[in-house]
């Protein structure tokens, strides 16, 4: 009976909170517009193989006669290629769809991995405390004093040197994901740790300890759900950052290779043609990247304000 009451109350509270957020969402134009744009870009990425006008990786369909065509609304433009083509005759629109796919894949997986590392370390740090806490937080402090992009670049650079050249291209994707994930865990860990510190002295945790539940079970099943709110906000904002870091690494030539081009790789490739007047090769992927990161950032900003009861 007691348990029923608690779960019913929790359920009710969650519903009201959900409704508040839903209300704020539907009444904040920036929130729903950026969500719609973001989701459309995600949809484009997922369905890229079905909706892209051409398959840019099908070498047989490439024709050098189609190379370096300007966007279709300009002189010499071709109706088949809305946003023009690159030096090898690949349609820019299609490469953008496939590039989005890779950029978003790297973004989501690295954020997920980062979240996993950060939340676990934060939970342990906050719950166990003592020396473990001190060590984890010292490392976090040190890492926080370096910008994430620099750490990702260093990890990535070191890996490239350690791994032989032939393996580079195959491993590049995973190395980049790992580098971005490691560069971003601190924020999660710090936030979760401080929430855990306030949660762990509450009665439900003591009750769990009294009836003899294990530490792992208390941490994961009971404390974790109560500290996840801010984690989603950090995750959303981190997604925008992760996408930008990946694009930057790829632009610098130490990220994803031209065989699996992300938006950053496309911008890098197109950058070489900027001076010969073929601006569309680099500008359209660039604009896509800006729209993507802006919509994720705006959504994240709204989510942060909406979940923060102090601002309401």
């Amino acid at each position: 009976m007691q348990e029923d009451n608690i779960s019913w109350a929790q359920d009710m509270r969650r519903r009201i909170a959900d409704n508040d957020i839903w209300y704020s969402f539907t009444h904040t134009p920036i929130a729903y517009i950026s969500a719609i744009i973001g989701l459309s870009l995600i949809a484009l990425a997922i369905f890229a193989p079905f909706i892209a006008p051409q398959n840019p990786f099908d070498l047989a369909s490439l024709d050098l006669f189609d190379a370096s065509l300007p966007p279709s609304w300009l002189d010499q433009g071709d109706q088949r290629f809305l946003l023009g083509t690159d030096d090898q005759g690949r349609g820019i629109l299609s490469t953008i769809f496939f590039g989005l796919r890779i950029s978003l894949f790297v973004g989501f997986t690295s954020v997920f991995l980062s979240l996993l590392i950060g939340v676990s370390l934060g939970l342990i740090s906050g719950y166990v405390g003592g020396r473990v806490d001190a060590v984890i937080m010292r490392i976090a402090d040190v890492q926080l004093s370096f910008p994430a992009i620099l750490i990702a670049l260093l990890i990535d650079g070191v890996f490239r040197t350690v791994v032989s050249k032939d393996l580079h291209e195959d491993l590049a994707l995973y190395v980049v994901i790992f580098a971005i994930a490691v560069s971003g865990w601190v924020q999660y860990a710090r936030t979760v740790r401080s929430s855990v510190m306030t949660e762990k002295i509450k009665e439900y945790v003591q009750a769990g300890q009294v009836i003899g539940l294990g530490s792992a079970r208390i941490m994961i099943k009971h404390i974790l759900p109560n500290v996840l709110g801010p984690v989603f906000v950090i995750g959303t904002l981190h997604l925008a950052l992760a996408i930008i870091i990946e694009a930057t690494l790829s632009f610098l030539g130490v990220g994803l290779p031209p065989t699996t081009p992300s938006l950053g790789t496309l911008i890098r490739i197109g950058n070489e043609y900027l001076f010969s007047g073929e601006w569309w090769i680099t500008i359209f992927p660039g604009l896509t990247l800006i729209i993507l990161s802006l919509s994720v950032n705006l959504f994240g900003d709204w989510l942060r304000d909406a979940l923060n009861p102090k601002l309401q």
Binding site: A240, I244, A247, T248, F251, L252, I267, N271, L274, F275, G277, W279, T282, I283, G286, L289, I290, S293, L294, N297, L298, D301
Partner: peptide
Amino acid sequence: SLVGVSLPTFLIGILLILLFGV
């Protein structure tokens, strides 16, 4: 300023090059 935060540094550079250099 929000746009400034969302713009990756290298893209700002490319856009400036396109505008003032090309």
